[in-house]
């Protein structure tokens, strides 16, 4: 393990300061508005801040741990997300072996390929090989009831929870001129822009939100929230350009793409939740629902961000 890049230390220290301020504000609000723990908004806010602490600490440790740490962390996120996804779909007894293969073969192989930097295989492993392998395993069991629905759901689960998520650690394999050894900062950039956009959309939506975008899907999403959140997340992205290989303008434009993909990712995942009749994907993180509830924006933006950076900046 080599020493983490100095900029990473600065970024993590900055996040710690933000969290300490947030915890202080949360504590103050609780003392003032919810001394007996009855104000649901304040309690939820404090639950979220506590979960943020855990996320930032884990993320920080993984980034300091370098490639192995980041790969393991996101492999675990994929595992937890897949567990939530499969819980909600229509699996049958006959899918048992296909599901076991998804968890114990496809997921580890995908992350192993990421870890050894085999771009040619990890970028098609799930879309091609798993796509062909999984229905074969399911077909061998002979149960044809709702066959197409079942195999489509398992493929979707793998694409969302494993393939897309694995593009975050894949950022480490990019070979960018004059940026060697600092790729973990690309991950920090992506994650900070996505999460800032989520929080800022929420804040702008609460302050100015009037026009609902998809009232049936996600009543809290408003045009004003989206525009305010996108503009401020672009400002955050531009302000972080010093940790990236991008100019401030490029960083702002990439942030725009990340925000838009993240926004629509949230919308798509809400549609799936509505379809399955649940409010949250799981209960693992207090105040945040499940893993997928936290990851949905990253899931949709990570592969696009990866390919944009790869084609625009990487030598390989």
């Amino acid at each position: 393990m080599t020493a983490p890049p100095p900029n990473l230390v600065i970024v993590l220290s900055g996040l710690l300061v933000i969290l300490i301020v947030a915890s202080g504000v949360g504590y103050g609000l609780q003392r003032k508005l919810s001394p007996d723990g009855t104000n649901a908004v304040i309690e939820n806010l404090n639950d979220r801040i506590r979960a943020w602490w855990v996320m930032v600490v884990l993320m920080g440790l993984a980034l300091i741990g370098g490639k192995t740490g980041v790969t393991l962390l996101f492999a675990f996120c994929s595992f937890a997300a897949l567990r939530e996804f499969i819980t909600l779909i229509n699996t049958r007894r006959a899918d048992h072996w296909a599901l076991a293969a998804a968890f114990f073969i496809v997921l580890p192989v995908q992350y192993y390929l990421i870890w050894i930097d085999w771009y040619g295989l990890y970028s098609i492993f799930i879309p091609v090989y798993a796509f062909l392998l999984m229905p074969i395993i399911a077909a061998l069991r002979g149960d044809t009831d709702r066959f197409l629905v079942r195999i489509a759901e398992v493929q979707w689960a793998l694409m969302i929870c494993v393939f897309c998520v694995s593009h975050v650690p894949a950022l480490l394999s990019l070979d960018i001129a004059d940026y060697q050894g600092r790729n973990v900062l690309l991950i920090a950039f992506l994650v900070i822009v996505v999460q800032a956009s989520d929080v800022l959309q929420y804040v702008w939506g609460k302050l100015l939100g009037r026009t609902k975008i998809a009232p049936r899907l996600s009543p809290s999403k408003t045009v004003e929230g989206l525009i305010g959140g996108a503009l401020s997340a672009m400002a955050v992205g531009a302000g972080l350009s010093w940790i990236t290989p991008f100019t401030p303008l490029q960083a702002a434009l990439l942030s725009f793409v990340i925000v838009v993909m993240g926004f629509f990712g949230g919308l798509v995942m809400s549609a799936i939740k509505r379809d399955r009749g649940v409010k949250d994907w799981g209960h693992l993180i207090a105040g945040h629902g499940g893993f997928i509830d936290r990851l949905d924006s990253v899931i949709f933006s990570a592969p696009i961000f990866f390919h944009l950076v790869r084609y625009g900046w990487s030598a390989t």
Binding site: F79, I86, A100, F103
Partner: peptide
């Protein structure tokens, strides 16, 4: 079956 599937 003897391999458990992770589900919540």
């Amino acid at each position: 079956e003897f391999v458990p599937i992770p589900l919540i």
